[in-house]
């Protein structure tokens, strides 16, 4: 049964390829080809029908030989199965790629969404979600590093307040502030001392220490901190951390802010010039006037996931 089906399928293709010949000629050709296969099977019953048909050649090629022997135009040769599979494979891969690319674009759009009113930054369609009011920063379904509070009520009895001042090294005049979660409002100090007025949900307090001429203030171990910092004129301040909100008011000092997840607000002093160097990854920035004056204060910020705003 299978033998006949294979043979009939072959003869059917051959018949189609010979369609330009008269019906009687086609019938004679098909009967003769069938007779050939049956004769071959009689001679060797163990021979497979597939092998016999393969020996005949592709039906379109056989038909072309009949047509060309009679001076007729050949039919279009069949596409090689290898080429056919290559084309199908290419088109299939392309379709899959476009499908996944479309899904990713749909899933992760818009790429960046900044909601200043609600202190929220959503990146890649919410894959990274920095929520200032809720006090959370998330990547996917995982919270990054606990919670942080930016504008919470710090005056309640549960928070711990600590404040103080510390002179900076007169030569280096460098201050290094590290944090994990927090909000910092920074202004220019009226004195030659670095000042801080902080509240923290954590018990205990931290104090600055001088290391190799640098005044180091490390808030990394504190769960949420809010500080007002005062920086002496001409000093250099490094503010480095994750999940935060930085407000820099009329700086008359050199600033180097490096933040991952959050916002940086800078209010330049009207009568000062700055050498501005800002870089943002996954976010946006207002434009600032930059001076070439080598004596101008350096205003450097590197922000990942968030927005740099110019306050007037």
């Amino acid at each position: 049964m299978k033998t006949n089906a294979q043979l009939e399928a072959y003869l059917s293709k051959l018949d189609r390829a010979l369609s330009s010949l008269p019906v009687s000629d086609r019938a004679e050709i098909l009967i003769e080809i069938k007779s050939h296969v049956l004769s071959a099977m009689e001679r060797d019953p163990h021979q497979s029908i597939g092998a016999l048909i393969a020996a005949l050649g592709e039906p379109e090629l056989v038909a072309n030989k009949y047509l060309m022997e009679r001076g007729n135009a050949p039919v279009k040769p069949p596409i090689s199965p290898v080429v056919k599979w290559l084309v199908m494979g290419f088109l299939g891969t392309l379709a899959l790629f476009l499908f996944f690319a479309g899904t990713l674009m749909w899933k992760f759009s818009p790429l960046l969404q900044v909601d200043e009113k609600n202190e929220r930054v959503r990146i890649l369609g919410g894959l990274i979600d920095v929520d200032g009011k809720a006090g959370q920063a998330k990547i996917g379904s995982s919270t990054l590093s606990g919670s942080f509070e930016l504008d919470a009520d710090w005056s309640d009895s549960e928070s711990v307040r600590f404040e103080g001042t510390n002179p900076v090294d007169p030569t280096k005049r460098a201050i290094d502030v590290r944090f994990t979660n927090g909000k910092f409002e920074v202004k220019t100090s009226e004195t030659e001392k670095f000042g801080w007025d902080c509240r923290s949900k954590a018990k205990g307090e931290t104090r600055p220490r001088l290391e190799a001429g640098v005044l180091l203030f490390d808030f990394s171990g504190m769960k949420g901190v809010r500080c007002d910092l005062s920086v002496p004129r001409e000093a250099s301040l490094l503010l480095k951390g994750t999940n935060g909100n930085l407000e820099i008011n009329e700086p008359e000092f050199h600033l180097d802010a490096r933040l991952v997840n959050g916002n940086i607000e800078i209010a330049p002093a009207d009568d000062e010039h700055y050498r501005v160097d800002l870089s943002v990854v996954n976010g946006s920035s207002d434009s600032f006037d930059s001076s070439d004056d080598p004596k101008a204060y350096r205003l450097t910020a590197q922000l990942t996931n968030g927005r740099i705003t110019k306050e007037k």
Partner: peptide
Amino acid sequence: VKEGTLYPLLSRMTT
């Protein structure tokens, strides 16, 4: 001689 060559040849010589 392959089948696919011989039979078309026989057909043409008959014609």
